[in-house]
Amino acid sequence: MSGVRRFVRENSLSLGFGLLFLLSLAGQALAGAAQMNEDRQAEGLEPVSLVQYLTSSSFAVDVMENWQSEYLQFALYVFATVWLVQRGSPESKELHAVGTESDEEQRVGSHAREDSPPWVRAGGWRTTLFSRSLGLLFGGLFLLTWAASSVAGWAAYNVEQLQSHADPVSWVAYLGEADFWNRTFQNWQSEMLAVGSMAVFAVYLRQRGSPESKPVGASHHDTGATG
C-alpha cells in the first residue's frame, strides 16, 4: 500500500468529515446567497455577489451560531461525563468509575507507559494541563465562537435596525436583546436534545461495527462497552 493510500485509509474519518464539512459550508453559502437575493429582489434592491454574501454579517452569524453550539455540546459532554453516568449506555463510563479516577487508572506519572505522551511522564503543571487539555480546548473554542457569533449577530441586528430606521445598539446592549438569546437558545436546545438522545437510545439500540454502539449481543445493562 502506497504512503498516500495508507495515510488516507488511516485518517479516513477526519478526512471524510472534513470533506463533508466543506461541501456543507459551500452548500450553505450558495443557498444563503440565493435566499438573500430573493429577499432583496422582493424589496426592490440590487442582488449581491457570492463574495459580498460571504463577507456579510448574515452569513457570519449563521455559521458562528452553529459552530458555537457544537463546541458547547462537546465541551459540556467532555466535562459532564467525568461525573455523570448513564446505565447501559456506551456513551457513559462504567458506573463505578465516576470522577477523575486514580493515577494508576489514568496511567499518569509513575504509572505512565513508554508510549505515553511526554507530558504525561513529565509531572507537575504539564501533566495537570495535559490531563485537562481536551475540555479546555473545547471550552475555549466555545467561548471564541460564542464571542464571534455575538459580534456577527450584533452587526446583523444593527443592519435590520437601520433598514427599519431605528437606532443601532451597542454590543453590550445587544447581549440583552431577545434576538440574541432567541438565536442562542435555538441552537443550544437542539444540541442538548441530540446528546441526551444518543446516550439513551444507545442503551437499547445497536449499530454493528460502530464504536458509538455496544456489541450487538451486549446486554442492555452493559455500561461503557463499545463494539
Rank of each mutant, 00 (worst) to 15 (best):
136 L>W: 08
143 L>V: 14
13 L>P: 04
147 A>F: 12
182 N>I: 10
128 T>C: 14
19 L>K: 02
225 A>Y: 14
213 S>T: 10
48 V>D: 00
202 A>I: 13
210 S>A: 06
5 R>D: 09
67 W>G: 10
120 V>N: 03
174 Y>D: 03
207 Q>L: 10
63 V>R: 15
217 G>P: 06
227 G>Y: 07
178 A>R: 08
126 R>T: 07
179 D>S: 06
147 A>Y: 10
42 A>P: 02
81 T>K: 09
151 V>Q: 00
77 Y>P: 02
64 M>G: 02
170 S>A: 03
159 V>G: 02
5 R>E: 14
47 P>D: 02
102 S>E: 04
96 H>T: 13
96 H>G: 11
60 A>P: 07
143 L>R: 08
32 G>I: 12
67 W>Q: 13
133 S>K: 06
128 T>M: 09
150 S>H: 06
220 H>Q: 12
114 E>R: 10
70 E>Y: 09
191 E>F: 11
56 S>K: 03
39 D>H: 01
184 T>A: 02
146 W>Y: 05
37 N>E: 11
31 A>R: 11
88 G>Q: 05
43 E>Q: 02
78 V>K: 11
195 V>G: 03
55 T>F: 06
17 F>I: 03
45 L>H: 05
152 A>Q: 05
102 S>H: 07
146 W>K: 03
123 G>S: 07
41 Q>R: 04
126 R>M: 05
72 L>T: 03
30 L>H: 05
162 L>N: 01
207 Q>E: 09
112 A>L: 12
159 V>H: 00
24 S>I: 10
175 L>Q: 06
127 T>G: 00
73 Q>T: 00
91 E>L: 12
100 T>Q: 14
99 G>D: 11
35 Q>Y: 09
147 A>L: 10
188 W>I: 11
177 E>M: 05
